[in-house]
Design a protein around this nucleic acid. Structure first.
Lengths: 206, 206
DNA sequence: TCATACAGACCAACCAGTCGGTTTATCGTG
DNA sequence: CACGATAAACCGACTGGTTGGTCTGTATGA
C-alpha cells in the first residue's frame, strides 16, 4: 500500500477520534498530512471510503482472531477464554479505530455498512455459539440465557474503548484476565467453581 | 415547558438516533415538526442546545435514581442490585436519548460537555463506592479490582442501548434480573454463593 | 399597547468533490 | 547509459450545494 495512503489514515484516525467524522474536514486532514485535495482523492474515492477502511481494518482483525481461537480450542471454557483475551488485546492495538467504529458507524454509506455488519454478526455468532456449547456440555450453568449473557460479555468488553488508557495502572493483559475471571465466575457451573478446579482452569490457558 | 419545545425534542430524537446529529439538519427538524426556523430558534439558542438538552434529561434522570437507590439501601449487595436494576430500566424509557448520548457526545460544545461529564462522573462514583464497600464489609470477594469490575458492570449495562428492543423476547425487567444475577455470581463472596443464601439475596430485593 | 410566539426569506461560511495542469517515477529502446 | 515516452502521483483553484443561524415582519392574546 502507498505511503501517503497509510499516512492519511494514521493522521485522520486521532482527528476523527477526538472531533468526530463530521468534525474534521478533508481540508483539515490534507493540511495535517502535508498533502493536497488531489493527493487525498487520488487514494480515496471519497471521505466515506476512508471511514470504511478504518472500520474494516479493525473488524477484520477481530474476526480473524476470534476464528483462530475458535478453531484452536475444544472446550467451550477454553474457547471463550481465548476469544475474550484476544478481543481485549485489540483495544490496546486499535483503540482509535474502535472509537471511530462505535461512534461514527451511522455515517457509513449503506453499501459499506452492510459489509461491516456481516463481519460483526459473524463475530457475535462465534461468542454465542461458545456459550451455547458450554451450556450443553455442562461446563456452564444451565440457568443462563445465552443471548443476554452473550450481549453482557460483549458489552463488558466493548465498553473498554471508553476508558482504557495505555498509561493506566493495569495492562491490557491484566484487564483481560480480570474480565475472564468475572465471566467464568458468573457462568461456570458450580462444580467447577471450587478454588482448585477454578484455578486450574484459569491457569490452563496461560 | 412550551408545547412546541417538547415537540421539537420528541421529533428530533428519533431522527438523531437514526441518522446522527450531523445527518439531520435544522430544516429537516422544523419541517417534520411543522414549524419554522423562527419557531425553532425562539425555543433553542442553537442546534447544540438541543443536543445538550437531550443529553441532560437522560443523565440527570439516571443520576437521580442512582442517588435514591444509594440512599435507600444499606448493604452494598442491595445497593448495587437496586442501582443496576433502576439503571437498566432507563434503557426502556430513554433509549433514543441514550443512543444520542453515546454516539454524539463528541459534538457537544465544551461548556455543555463539562456539565454532562460531571454528572456522569458522579454516577460512576456511586457504583465504585458500592463495590468498594462490599469488598470491605466482606459481602464481595476480596480479590476483585474495584475499578475494573466497576467498568465491567458499567459496560455490560451501558451496552444495552446497542441491542435492546422493546419487542424483544425478554422484558427490560428480565434483562435487569439476568444482569444482577451475573454480577452477583461474579463478585459475591463464596460464602453467599450456595443456592439458598443466594436465592434469598436475589429475592430480598423484589 | 405591548410582549410573546412564530413565519420564512435571506446570508455568510463551509464542505466534499472535480478537474486541468504539473511533477515524479518507471521502463523500453537504441 | 541516455533519452524519450507513458503513466502514476500529486497539486490547488474552483464550484455547486448545503447548513446553521439571523432578521424583519406578522399574528395572537393579555
Amino acid at each position: 500500500m502507498s505511503d501517503l495512503r497509510k499516512k492519511i489514515i494514521q493522521t485522520a484516525l486521532p482527528l476523527f477520534e477526538a472531533k468526530g467524522f463530521h468534525g474534521v474536514s478533508v481540508n483539515e486532514i490534507v493540511e495535517q498530512v502535508g498533502t493536497s485535495k488531489g493527493g487525498f482523492y487520488h487514494h480515496f474515492s471519497s471521505k466515506d471510503e476512508l471511514l470504511f477502511v478504518i472500520h474494516d481494518t479493525f473488524i477484520s482483525y477481530v474476526l480473524e482472531n476470534a476464528e483462530k481461537a475458535n478453531a484452536e480450542f475444544n472446550s467451550p471454557t477454553d474457547k471463550l477464554q481465548a476469544i475474550v483475551r484476544s478481543f481485549v488485546k485489540v483495544f490496546d492495538l486499535y483503540k482509535p479505530h474502535i472509537s471511530v467504529f462505535y461512534q461514527e458507524h451511522i455515517y457509513l454509506r449503506p453499501a459499506y455498512e452492510l459489509q461491516i455488519k456481516q463481519k460483526r454478526d459473524q463475530f457475535k455468532q462465534i461468542i454465542m455459539q461458545a456459550i451455547e456449547e458450554g451450556k450443553q456440555c455442562g461446563e456452564f450453568r444451565q440457568d443462563i440465557s445465552v443471548e443476554i449473557t452473550g450481549m453482557a460479555i460483549l458489552g463488558m468488553v466493548n465498553w473498554t474503548y471508553k476508558w482504557y488508557q495505555r498509561e493506566g495502572v493495569k495492562t491490557i493483559e491484566e484487564i483481560g484476565d480480570i474480565f475472564v475471571d468475572l465471566i467464568l465466575h458468573a457462568i461456570l457451573h458450580e462444580r467447577f467453581l471450587d478454588q482448585n478446579a477454578f484455578a486450574s482452569i484459569l491457569l490452563s490457558q496461560k
